[in-house]
Design a protein around this nucleic acid. Structure first.
Length: 297
DNA sequence: CGGGACTCCTGCCAGC
DNA sequence: TGCTGGCAGGAGTCCC
């Protein structure tokens, strides 16, 4: 899935076609996503004006004019396509075949379709259905089951060395696992954790606690935070990473996958100048980790 | 309680 | 060419 930069890119792509605009028609073709769509989901969306779009962790939050929030999560394979009234991608200057692989012409995995008053269609598709949507009163945002446990936003000032030191103190879990823990930092996923650890020269296998020795604030924590922010910011600027299913809202590809130093590069030379190491793939917590054993310690 | 394994679901690709 | 196993941007739940 889409990690934070991909979700941010999708959210930004939706802003111009959703913010301030009215959902004329909503269609729930397949209600059994990771969580079942709430009762009357489509009917409750129709006629609503979208006041604003925001992102929290990997969730897109659309605030509606009736005080409810439409929440969207893309899971591993979710994508959102924006189609102009003519059925083509709204992306200017690039033809996009609505029946093609990236299109949304009523294909099997198109689960939710929103038609805006202007005729723009917003199509949510998700082959594996690990994604979800929910619709609930904005007052429930802080207590929502899927949001309340989330940790700090990595691009916010709330993520600083003292915070991470507290979160990591005494942790025996691998650093990789701790960084994937959404209750500590919300929004990181497998790709950007691997990339940030490589930039930080930190092994994914060391314990999280090794960076948070009692009483002392390791300078490596500050460095790690800086690299997390940088890799996320660069990925957002590149429109995210496109691997298999993810695409930007306009159907175009992100570009950050070309900048991967370690992710999906097992057996290839380490990208760090001067490092003679070879990228290795290991499995941690049932997930692939890519790193360079030579320069990440 | 923390941490790791398992689970949901479908598609794709390498290898035989 | 056709099947099979393995793997995939997530994350909640269960079990030790």
């Amino acid at each position: 899935m889409p990690e934070l930069p991909e979700v941010e890119t999708v959210m930004r792509g939706l802003k111009p076609v959703m913010e301030g605009r009215v959902i004329a028609q909503a269609e729930a073709r397949r209600p059994d996503l990771r969580l079942p769509l709430p009762p009357d989901f489509a009917r409750r969306l129709e006629g609503r004006r979208v006041e604003s779009l925001a992102r929290r962790a990997k969730y897109i939050l659309a605030h509606l004019d009736d005080g409810h929030v439409l929440m969207i999560h893309l899971g591993m394979t979710g994508r959102v396509s924006v189609l102009g009234p003519d059925g083509r991608s709204a992306h200017l200057g690039e033809f996009h075949d609505p029946q093609g692989p990236g299109g949304a012409g009523g294909r099997r995995h198109d689960h939710v379709v929103l038609t805006m008053a202007e005729g723009t269609r917003i199509v949510y598709s998700d082959p594996r259905r690990f994604g979800l949507m929910d619709l609930f009163p904005a007052a429930e945002l802080p207590s929502h089951k899927l949001l309340k446990h989330l940790g700090v936003e990595p691009l916010s000032e709330a993520l600083d060395a003292p915070y991470l030191a507290r979160a990591f103190a005494g942790k025996s879990a691998p650093l990789k696992a701790a960084l994937l823990d959404q209750a500590i930092i919300a929004g990181l996923g497998n790709i950007y954790v691997c990339e940030a650890l490589h930039r930080s020269k930190l092994s994914p296998r060391r314990t999280a606690g090794s960076l948070a020795k009692a009483g002392k604030l390791s300078p490596r924590l500050g460095s790690l935070i800086g690299h997390i922010r940088a890799v996320l910011a660069e990925a957002i600027a590149a429109g995210g990473s496109t691997l298999r299913d993810y695409a930007r809202a306009d159907g175009s590809d992100g570009a950050f996958q070309r900048a991967f130093a370690v992710y999906d590069r097992a057996g290839k030379p380490c990208a760090r100048p001067g490092c003679a190491g070879t990228v290795k793939r290991i499995v941690q917590a049932n997930r692939s980790t890519f790193y360079c054993p030579a320069c990440q310690t």
